[in-house]
Computed example of a mutant assay.
Amino acid sequence: MAAARFLVSGKVQGVFFRASTREQALELGLSGHAINLDDGRVEVVAEGAGEAVEALASWLRHGPPMARVEGVERSDCEECRVPGFSIG
């Protein structure tokens, strides 16, 4: 089991980034969340199989079609236990 926290910057709010991230995560069997931050970034926490977390990490680098991702910061975590996958 792997868990990671991602901070995604760029044009990532108001472009269906969180909903698209949730779809990707659920397809990959991941739990976690995607939430808008006050500074314009989106925080994504993902937990599941290591290869699934890596697949989501790769997807986050470009996001959905209307997004313009400028950066993705990643930190691995052990305290990211989140059931299901929520957006907020």
Rank of each mutant, 00 (worst) to 15 (best):
Q13K: 04
L60C: 05
E51H: 14
D39W: 03
D76I: 00
S75D: 11
E70Q: 15
F16N: 12
E23L: 14
Q13H: 03
G14K: 06
G63F: 07
V44P: 03
E54Y: 00
V8H: 03
A34D: 07
V72R: 04
E43P: 11
F6S: 01
E47G: 12
E54H: 01
S86D: 14
A34P: 03
L60D: 03
H33C: 14
R68Y: 10
L7D: 05
Q24T: 14
A67Q: 06
G29L: 11
D38T: 09
V12Y: 03
R18M: 08
V82T: 13
G50F: 00
G63P: 08
R18Y: 08
G71E: 13
R61G: 10
E54N: 08
G40S: 06
P64F: 11
L60K: 05
R22V: 04
G14Y: 02
A49H: 12
V82Q: 15
L60I: 08
S31K: 11
A46Q: 05
Q24W: 11
L37R: 15
A55F: 01
R81L: 14
E78H: 08
V53G: 04
G10I: 02
E73G: 05
R74L: 12
R81S: 15
F16E: 09
A3W: 00
G10W: 05
F85W: 12
F6C: 03
K11Y: 12
P65H: 09
A46S: 05
V15Y: 11
E43H: 01
R81N: 14
D76A: 10
L26N: 06
R61H: 07
S86M: 09
F6K: 02
C77P: 00
E79R: 13
V12D: 04
R81I: 10
A55N: 10
G29H: 06
V42S: 04
E27W: 06
P83Y: 01
R18W: 08
S20G: 15
R41I: 01
S9Q: 12
E51I: 02
F6I: 00
A55E: 15
G32D: 05
C80W: 03
A55L: 10
A19V: 14
V45S: 04
E43K: 02
L7R: 15
S86V: 13
G48W: 08
D76P: 00
S86E: 14
V53K: 07
V53E: 02
E27K: 15
A3K: 09
R5C: 05
V12G: 02
L26Y: 05
V53T: 11
N36S: 04
S75N: 02
E47P: 02
A4Y: 08
T21S: 04
Q13L: 02
V53A: 00
G88S: 12
A19F: 08
W59V: 04
F85H: 07
E51S: 15
L28Q: 10
S75F: 02
G14Q: 06
S75C: 01
L37I: 00
S58V: 15
G32V: 02
V53L: 07
G88T: 09
